[in-house]
Structures are given as C-alpha cells and as structure tokens.
C-alpha cells in the first residue's frame, strides 16, 4: 500500500511538472565543443535562449562528443534529445541515411523539427520538418569560384584537407564548376590524411603545388585554419597577391589578411544566424503558432572582403562571427 501511495505521489508530481512546461522546450544539436564553427552556432543558441526563456521556455544545446563514429553517433544524439521529450528540435541533417530515421521518430513523437546548417528544403519537406535554415555548400562553392574569376583568376585550386567528405566535396565542386563555366580552369588539391590539422603540412603542400604548377593564380581553402596555413604557403612560394586566396568561414587572422590585402575574400554561411533563426522560429511556432512562409531560409553565402571587413571584425570579438 505504501509503495502504491508513493507511486501515485510521484505520478502527481510528474503530471504537475509536465503541465508546468507549457512554453517551448527546445533541443538543439551541434558539433563538438572544440570545433570553432560550432561555438559561433553556440553564440546564436545563447542569444536565442534569452528570447525563449523570456517566454518561460528553455533551450538545451546537445553537442557531439567526437566525430570518429559520425554516422552512428549523429543519429544517436537525436534519440538522446527525443528521450528528453522536448517540444521542438533544431537539428543539422549531416548524414541522411543514418539520421533520417531518427528525425522521423522525433516527428512521429510530436516534436516540431527544423533542419539547420546541414540539409535542404527538399529534405525537410520529405521528412515533415518545418523548414531548412542554412546555406547550400554547392551554391557557396560557386560564389567562391565566381569571385575568383571576377578577381581575374584563370587557374584555380580548391585546397581540400578532407577529401571524400560530401559537403566539402560539394564546396570544391561548386567552385570548380563556376570557374570552368566562366572559361577558366580549376581543380582540386586533395591533401593526404597525414596532413589534416597540421598547419606545417598544409603550408608546405600549397607551396610545393604552386612551385610545380606556376600557372595557378587562385586558391580556395575549405576552412579558416587551412587558409592560415595556405597563406604562409603562398607567401613562401613568393606569390602573395598574385595568387588570389579565398576561404570558407574565417577567423581573426583571416580578417587581418583581408584587411591588409593578403587574402581576397572569405565565404561565410553566417552560422550565428542559423541557430538564432532556427530556435526563435521554432519557439514562435510552438508558443504562438507563427509560421514563416519563406522556405528554405538561406543564411549564406555571404562574402567578406575589404568592403565589410571592419563590421565583421566587431562581430568576431564577441564570438558571433
């Protein structure tokens, strides 16, 4: 009898706390916490949280522990989020095959889902998600290629430290397609896996490539760290300014180079906007039934070059860009 009473009491407490959570309870899934890109996303999460909490809701940012078993872990983290019974879920659809079933489970459990950062609007429609907020890697790659051509580049390379990774390959493909269509030449420089994360290896690889192929006059790096190393490689080949350098994403050093003219531009998908918009749109939908008819919401590509570098630097200082 005693245990039955206890169980009933527990059930009553649970029921009360469940009804108390009327306002939006939103789970957000993101990449590792030592991944600089996902900390800009975090700034968007933190800023959106202010709005959600003002209305009595809460936001939980779940982050990947590692990328080593990516396909399986990225699906598992969605199931972890579902088990916390949120009302809304903002999730990057990195690996369709493994994550889609988990996203469908979330939607079947009555959770409102928005795809952000990785995915497409077609994918969101297919799964039953509300929207897709992010950039399109291929379109961003094309923007890079077009900018290089506009700068007068005739022979481009796409410096790829993660060959075989689908979204990175799409970046390079977009750049190569855009340059080829404009009558220029472009190819990939896929670096071996022994060089990933090693700035010396990347710098020397770029230098060696520029030495053995002197016709190259445009380069696009797949990330900001890669661009730091590539800029040193270009300088060592004695080609600063002659080889127009661009990169995806950026850091403080990238902006310093853009300001001083050592680097031409950076392509930004504006991650801060992705999480900020995804969470506030979800919360508005859950709390007030609002609905944004613009689908997908593209947050990029935005080009950072000499014309807007100063405002960007201000954003970097507080971790929003």
């Amino acid at each position: 009898m005693k245990t039955l009473k206890k169980m009933m009491a527990t059930a009553a407490v649970l029921a009360v706390s469940a009804t108390a959570a009327l306002a939006a309870d939103i789970a957000v899934i993101g990449g590792k916490n030592d991944d600089a890109f996902w900390n800009k996303i975090k700034k968007g999460v933190d800023d959106a949280r202010l709005v959600v909490e003002a209305n009595g809701g809460k936001v939980n940012y779940l982050r990947m522990q590692s990328y080593d078993n990516f396909a399986a872990d990225s699906a598992e983290i969605i199931r972890t989020a579902i088990s916390q019974k949120p009302q809304g879920l903002a999730v990057p659809d990195w690996v369709y095959d493994s994550q889609d079933p988990a996203i469908k489970e979330a939607i079947a459990a009555g959770i409102k889902v928005i795809l952000f950062n990785a995915g497409t609007w077609d994918k969101a429609k297919e799964l039953g998600a509300l929207n897709y907020i992010g950039s399109d890697e291929y379109v961003a790659g094309r923007a890079g290629g077009e900018y290089l051509v506009k700068q007068g580049a005739k022979n481009g390379i796409c410096i790829n430290t993660l060959p075989g990774t689908a979204n990175i390959e799409a970046r390079c493909k977009g750049m190569i397609d855009a340059m080829t269509e404009a009558g220029a030449k472009a190819e990939q420089l896929p670096l071996p896996s022994t060089s990933f994360g090693d700035p010396v290896a990347i710098a020397e690889a770029v230098k060696a490539t520029l030495t053995s192929k002197p016709e190259i006059d445009g380069a696009l790096a797949i990330g900001a760290g890669e661009a730091d190393a590539s800029a040193i490689g270009i300088a060592q080949a004695g080609k600063t300014g002659q080889v127009k350098l661009g990169c995806f994403d950026f850091n403080e050093a990238t902006l310093g180079r853009i300001k001083s003219g050592e680097q031409a531009f950076a392509i930004d998908q504006q991650p801060y906007l992705q999480s900020l918009l995804a969470i506030t749109l979800l919360a508005g939908h859950i709390d007030f039934g609002t609905d944004l008819p613009t689908r997908p919401v593209l947050t990029g590509p935005g080009i950072v070059d000499g014309s807007n570098v100063d405002a960007t630097i201000a954003g970097v200082k507080i971790g929003a860009r």
Binding site: A36, G197, D198, P199, V200, G225, D228, A229, I232, A253
Partner: peptide, 20 residues
C-alpha cells in the same frame, strides 16, 4: 614555434602527429 609562425591557434589536438 608554430603559434609564433602561424599567428592563429586552434584548440584542436593534432591527432595525426601521434601517428606521424
């Protein structure tokens, strides 16, 4: 030395260095 040369440091461990 790499910090002084490359001027920007990322907090990612260089796992490939172990193998290398």
């Amino acid at each position: 030395s790499q910090a002084i040369l490359f001027q920007a440091v990322q907090a990612t461990p260089q796992m490939t260095l172990i193998f290398n």
